[in-house]
């Protein structure tokens, strides 16, 4: 399999009035063609900023360094015109909240055809035919009539389907889904995830799935990156991660999933909060919340250690040789 996306030492800082916020700190990962990569982490861990950097969507006060290579082409520092050629055509994205991701004053048709007219140079008529096909592909009934509808005439799940159809129009190589099911109820969530999986097969796409739902990760990803406070702390193939989570944070995340046969008064949580991104401390960002914390954790960020095939973790627990 060929490498589709290669992210190297991606660092994102935001300059604010209160100082510099370190949103993402030297994140590196590789995505193969046709693979689904899950990025998990709690709110504020930098998941969305990571894909924002890939799509060139970050606000003006962001400083990005490192490299993002898509099909061998460097995306960082690309001017708007060149970027506009890639996004919408070869990389597409769907968002968390389908309720606000469609323009309320335009029909679905106008919003869908616009993408095809722009990237494929199609006439409005051809674009409409293609759009209807795509709505059919995401299982919107009566697509022919429905395409003339306005967004508010669709339910949340339907709108997310429309968003997916829009993203697929140009048959992209990479689909980024930023918490695509968070705003939907559980039954619809399953439908959307199944749909994404089917469509991924059908269109031979790779997918980056951002989520904080470990269940979603287990169901749809091939490979997982666990992100904490802007750092990728563990990456592993999905089976390996669920079988033997290495990083205490990953262990905490998996431990926090409520199980049916548990009879607990309270849900298990990871105590504490994310560290302040304005004043990161020297050591591991998880040190304050970690149950296995050691002295060195508070002073030095651990490097990455390889833990089996395609798997690495950043934790002092696995540096046994060096910690004397």
């Amino acid at each position: 399999m060929a490498t589709l996306l290669e992210v190297n030492n991606l660092t994102i800082d935001f300059t604010t009035r209160n100082g510099t916020i370190h949103a993402v700190d030297s994140a590196s990962f590789i995505l193969q063609e046709g693979q689904t990569l899950g990025i998990v982490g709690e709110s504020g861990s930098g998941k969305s900023q990571t894909v924002g950097a890939i799509m060139g969507l970050l606000p003006n006060n962001a400083t990005v360094s490192g490299s993002v290579k898509f099909q061998g082409q460097e995306l960082l520092g690309l001017d708007a015109k060149a970027m506009n050629k890639i996004r919408g055509d070869r990389i597409c994205m769907i968002f968390q909240d389908p309720m606000s991701s469609l323009n309320p004053y335009l029909t679905i048709e106008r919003q869908m055809t616009e993408v095809l007219c722009l990237h494929k140079g199609m006439s409005r008529k051809d674009a409409k035919i293609e759009s209807i096909k795509m709505l059919d592909a995401v299982k919107i009934p009566e697509a022919k009539q429905r395409i003339n509808y306005y967004p508010h005439e669709f339910s949340g799940g339907m709108r997310q389907r429309v968003m997916i159809a829009m993203a697929l129009l140009c048959r992209p190589k990479l689909l980024i889904a930023d918490e695509p099911t968070t705003a939907l109820d559980v039954t619809v969530q399953a439908q959307i995830l199944n749909l994404l999986a089917e469509i991924k097969q059908e269109f031979h796409m790779a997918m980056i799935l951002i989520t904080h739902d470990m269940g979603v990760v287990a169901g749809s990803c091939d490979y997982v990156e666990v992100m904490y406070a802007g750092k990728l702390v563990e990456n592993a193939p999905v089976e390996a991660l669920f079988a033997t989570p290495k990083h205490p944070y990953t262990q905490g995340l998996l431990g926090a999933i409520p199980k049916l046969n548990d009879n607990l008064e309270k849900l298990i949580t990871i105590p504490g909060e994310l560290p302040n991104a304005l004043h990161p401390h020297a050591g591991c960002p998880f040190a304050d919340r970690c149950s296995k914390v050691m002295d060195i954790c508070r002073t030095q960020m651990p490097g990455s250690t390889s833990e089996g095939p395609d798997r690495s973790v950043k934790c002092w627990l696995y540096h046994s040789g060096e910690v004397a």
């Binding site: 050629k85 055509d89 597409c92 968390q96 606000s100 991701s101 722009l118």
Partner: peptide
């Protein structure tokens, strides 16, 4: 978000203003 969605579908600034901002 729909403006962001228009950006990531590769629309230029002028098109976004004309087609997505002004109707709203």
């Amino acid at each position: 978000i729909f403006i962001e969605a228009a950006q990531i579908s590769g629309l230029s600034q002028i098109k976004i203003i004309a087609k997505h901002i002004i109707p709203n």
